[in-house]
């Protein structure tokens, strides 16, 4: 997979030529549309809302937000505001005469809206760009935290955000989601087709529990084909997969290993690993 963010900053990479290439490619259009629909499903809007589109680019996603409910957008048509750092991309969007408002802004510098503005926020293939810093004055962590803090403020209570991004590795995935959690969001990662070349990562964020009874997994309740994996560490438990030497779990693991080596192993029972009673 090519990673343009490793080569140039976004405002320089998406020049007039690249922006046009990106917007006219029917493959990218289809993928972006699929991802936007997926993100809208995860946000679960019930009435026409004000939506923020972070890194809107040439507004491939914005066009879908403006569609009516009959054309396939849940609870549409929505009113949206998009911002992007690339002037060329916005130029392409202007030519298409999209319905939303556009701003030229850098997400890493914050979200210039007053608190409680938006019902929801979406972002399609953008926030991996925040993991890069162009000058020594700023750092990826600083840019991410400024973005998520101000995004948190600009969403209304009970609002949701769904940010699709392409993490380079697990570290980057963790860095982005940790920054969101630190800002106060309830966060969960949803992966479509994990492990394949077309894997898509969605960071689903909630502001205040609302009807979700305090758990991000409520977002995907009732959705088909979604497995919930709990990775939060429970307080007071050991690190996963490591048993203390001499404990029952450790003994059972050793027995398994020895059985696999073909050795004769005593059968396990409820007495396995228990202390013997003191004998007189």
């Amino acid at each position: 997979m090519s990673r343009p963010e490793d080569i140039l900053p976004p405002d320089l990479h998406y020049n007039d030529v690249e922006s046009r290439k990106y917007t006219t490619s029917s493959r990218i259009q289809r993928i972006q549309a699929d991802m936007t629909h997926r993100a809208l499903d995860l946000i679960g809007l019930t009435q026409p809302s004000l939506i923020l589109d972070v890194g809107c680019g040439s507004c491939l996603s914005g066009e879908i937000l403006s569609q009516t409910a009959e054309e396939g957008t849940p609870a549409g048509p929505h009113v949206w505001v998009g911002f992007d750092i690339s002037a060329s991309m916005l130029g392409v969007a202007l030519e298409k005469e999209v319905e939303g408002d556009l701003l030229l802004a850098d997400a890493g510098q914050g979200v210039p809206f007053r608190p409680g503005t938006f019902d929801a926020a979406i972002s399609i293939s953008a926030i991996q760009w925040l993991c890069q810093a162009e000058t020594s004055e700023e750092s990826p962590a600083g840019r991410l935290s400024r973005f998520f803090n101000q995004l948190y403020a600009s969403l209304r209570r009970g609002g949701r955000a769904c940010l699709q991004f392409y993490p380079k590795n697990d570290d980057q995935k963790k860095m982005v989601s940790q920054a969101a959690i630190k800002a106060g969001f309830g966060a969960g990662l949803l992966e479509d087709d994990p492990g394949t070349k077309s894997a898509k990562t969605y960071l689903v964020l909630t502001v205040g529990g609302g009807e979700l009874d305090g758990d991000i997994t409520g977002v995907v309740r009732g959705m088909e084909g979604v497995d919930v994996m709990e990775t939060r560490r429970k307080a007071g438990t050991m690190k996963r997969g490591v048993d203390k030497k001499g404990s029952k779990g450790w003994i059972l693991k050793k027995k398994e290993q020895q059985k696999a080596q073909g050795k004769v192993v005593k059968a396990s029972s409820k007495y396995t690993g228990r202390k013997r009673r003191i004998q007189f």
């Binding site: 911002f83 030229l104 510098q109 000058t135």
Partner: peptide, 10 residues
């Protein structure tokens, strides 16, 4: 052209 510039110098 209807697009506000919110980019800030460093």
């Amino acid at each position: 052209e209807g697009v506000a510039n919110f980019l800030l110098p460093g």
